[in-house]
C-alpha cells in the first residue's frame, strides 16, 4: 500500500469538501483496502467516514425504508422490518459475504464494489484499468458475463444492489452542488471509454442514503455459489411482486452476476405480469429472461443456471 494521509470526519457535511480525484472515502474498507494493496487505486488522502454517525441508521416509515449509507450488511440482514417487508434485500445482505465481512462492509460501499475479475485484480493492465484489452474476453472467463454490455466482460459482484433494483430503490447522493436522487438502476452502468468503473459516482460525491419505496407483498433473492457457504455469486436473481387473488402484479425480475451491472429481465416480467404463475409459465419466463444471453468460452453453465434460478424464484414468490 502506498502511504496516504488519513482523515477522520465526524459527520457527512465534513466529507464533501475533502473529496476529489486524489482522495477516497473509506467506510468498511473491505474493497478499498484490497484495491489499495493491489495498487489499483492509490489515494493521497483517505477520508474515514466510519465515525459519521449521521450516516448509520435504518428507518421504516409510511414512505418506505430509509437506510443510511454506513449501515453494515449485517445490520441490514438482522433488521426485523427489512426481513419482513423487504425480504429480497435481507436475503441478499445475508448471502453477500462472510460474517466478518458483513460486520465491516457497508451498503454504500457495497454499491461501489469493483469487479472481482482476476485480470482486473491481478497484474494485467486490462481495459477496465485503463488499458486496451479485456483479457477475460478470450482468456479464462468461467465467472464472467453472459450479457455483453461493454468492452469489459467482468460481472458486477455485489448482491444487495440487484435486490435494490427489484425494489426500485433510489440513492441520495451529495456533492459540492448539493443532493441528487438517482435510481439504483441508473446509478449502475456498464463502464465506458471515459469512465472505467461499474458505477457513475463522481470522485467528489458521496452516497448518503438508500431509499426503498414501500415494499411489494413478496420478494425473494436466490444466489448460486460454487461452494456451500460463502462465495461470490455465479448467478443470482432478485424478484419482487404483489400477489393478489393468486396472480402476480408489478413483477420485477433482476439478474445478478451475469453482466457489468444487474439486469432487469423486462420481457420475462411482461410474460408473467398479471398471471397466475404456474411452474410451466415460470420455466418459460426463465427462457425468456435468458433469450439474449450469449456464453463465453468457459461459462456456458451460466445459461441453464440463471434460467432455472429465475423459474425457481418465480415459483417461490407464488408459494409465498
Amino acid at each position: 500500500m502506498q502511504p496516504f494521509i488519513h482523515i477522520d470526519v465526524a459527520n457527512s457535511e465534513e466529507v464533501i469538501p475533502l473529496l476529489d480525484a486524489r482522495s477516497r472515502p473509506l467506510a468498511g474498507g473491505t474493497d478499498m483496502l484490497p484495491l489499495m494493496k493491489e495498487g489499483i487505486v492509490a489515494p493521497e488522502r483517505l477520508i474515514n467516514i466510519k465515525r459519521a454517525g449521521d450516516l448509520r441508521y435504518i428507518r421504516a416509515d409510511e414512505d418506505g425504508l430509509h437506510i443510511g449509507a454506513l449501515t453494515t450488511l449485517d445490520e441490514l440482514d438482522r433488521h426485523p422490518d427489512v426481513r419482513r417487508d423487504y425480504t429480497t434485500l435481507a436475503q441478499a445482505a445475508a448471502e453477500a459475504a462472510s460474517p466478518q465481512l458483513r460486520n465491516m462492509a457497508t451498503l454504500g460501499g457495497n454499491l461501489l464494489q469493483q469487479a472481482r475479475c482476476w485480470y482486473y485484480r491481478g497484474d494485467f493492465h486490462c481495459w477496465l484499468k485503463g488499458g486496451e484489452l479485456c483479457h477475460a474476453r478470450d482468456g479464462r472467463n468461467e465467472y464472467h458475463a453472459i450479457f455483453d454490455q461493454s468492452p469489459c466482460v467482468a460481472v458486477y459482484p455485489s448482491d444487495p444492489p440487484a435486490a435494490l433494483m427489484a425494489l426500485e430503490a433510489n440513492l441520495r447522493i451529495v456533492g459540492p452542488q448539493g443532493a441528487r436522487l438517482v435510481p439504483v438502476a441508473e446509478f449502475l452502468q456498464p463502464p465506458s471509454a471515459e469512465r472505467r468503473t461499474l458505477h457513475t459516482l463522481a470522485p467528489n460525491e458521496l452516497i448518503v442514503e438508500v431509499h426503498v419505496p414501500k415494499g411489494p407483498s413478496g420478494s425473494v433473492y436466490l444466489k448460486a455459489m460454487d461452494r456451500a457457504t460463502w462465495a461470490y455469486a455465479l448467478a443470482s436473481v432478485a424478484v419482487a411482486a404483489n400477489i393478489r387473488d393468486g396472480r402476480a402484479h408489478n413483477v420485477r425480475i433482476v439478474l445478478g452476476a451475469v453482466s457489468n451491472r444487474p439486469i432487469r429481465a423486462l420481457a420475462a416480467e411482461e410474460l408473467v405480469e398479471g398471471q397466475l404463475i404456474t411452474p410451466e409459465l415460470a420455466r418459460r419466463a426463465g427462457e425468456t429472461a435468458l433469450a439474449a444471453a450469449r456464453a463465453l468460452e468457459h461459462n456456458h453453465y451460466k445459461l441453464p443456471l440463471t434460467r432455472n434460478l429465475v423459474a425457481q424464484a418465480l415459483r417461490d414468490i407464488m408459494a409465498g
Binding site: G29, T30, P34, K37, N48, S98, Q100, L101, N103
Partner: peptide, 23 residues
C-alpha cells in the same frame, strides 16, 4: 491479506473482523 481466509480474525469491541482489512 485480502479478507478471504479469516486467519487474521480478531474481535474489535466484541465484533469479529478481519484485522488485515482494518487500519
Amino acid at each position: 491479506n485480502m479478507g478471504n481466509c479469516g486467519a487474521c480474525t480478531v474481535l474489535v469491541d466484541g465484533v469479529a473482523v478481519y484485522s488485515c482489512l482494518t487500519l
